[in-house]
Nucleic acid binder design. Sequence first.
DNA 1: CAGGAGTCCGAACACTATTCGGCGTCCGGC
DNA 2: GCCGGACGCCGAATAGTGTTCGGACTCCTG
Lengths: 150, 150
Amino acid sequence: MDELDSAIVRELQQDARQTNRALAHKLGVAPSTCLERVRLLHQRGVIRGYHADIDPGALNRRVEAFVSVELRPPSRRAIEGFKAAMFALPEVLAVYVVAGEQDFLVHVSVPDLDALHSFLIDRLTERREVASFRSQIIYDSARKHVSDPL
Amino acid sequence: MDELDSAIVRELQQDARQTNRALAHKLGVAPSTCLERVRLLHQRGVIRGYHADIDPGALNRRVEAFVSVELRPPSRRAIEGFKAAMFALPEVLAVYVVAGEQDFLVHVSVPDLDALHSFLIDRLTERREVASFRSQIIYDSARKHVSDPL
DNA sequence: CAGGAGTCCGAACACTATTCGGCGTCCGGC
DNA sequence: GCCGGACGCCGAATAGTGTTCGGACTCCTG
């Protein structure tokens, strides 16, 4: 994980589809060298994959929210089960098991507020292990990539 | 945005680096057709980019957390300023402006708990507009891609 | 100083992206 | 019902790309 690896990671986080030649040229190395580095980063698990970033609005998901959930018995069984159940739902983008007052943070994306309400009362209230929940609608968001310097 | 477009989006979310030929073959269309569709999806803003998924641990970020922040005057000025300031920090992965008791949800990733503590007392407590904050360490997480069916 | 491991390089080859003219299909107008 | 235009799909051709591999170089070690 030297400077070259970091530079490759940085570049591929910004544009994963640039050609290997372009990448090599930017970093000042031969394409074959660059390719080998990328392959090794893959093999070591540093690069986990390449994904297209899709506009949720284009797929009719204009409302996003975080739902904090407190589980009744915060046991392993309940947590694992709830996590799997949430993850299987199409409205769910991400599930976080967290420390604190709540046990879960569920990131959901739905077409509109009605759909959010439906999700809450049909998918959450229905589950008995849910002791309480609180939803926070996302007004605005900005995401980044991880940068190497601490 | 027909069935073919949806299939392309679905495929490219899973693997953005598969060759156009492979993609075309999976979907049962000619490579040239597939390429044209992908270009249009780009042009329409449906596909916003392609990004490599990097293991945070490999970049020495083994601790992640959500920090909920309440701003003193929840004014536009304060919100915009705080959002920009947070986004500029290397520890910050994402910033969410949310509705509810707290005004912000900041997703951070740091090397260890000490670094998290430093972040909280050096970067948050320092800011005068921060009325209060609460941090939730992430024990476990799972992310997905948006799927077309509602 | 010799040996060895590791890394980088450049040329060769197979494969791929990309372009473009033509074909088929659908649809509205006459 | 027939014509004409628009649109989308296709396949061949070309330019560019990924990938492999042997050799050269550097750096460390004994």
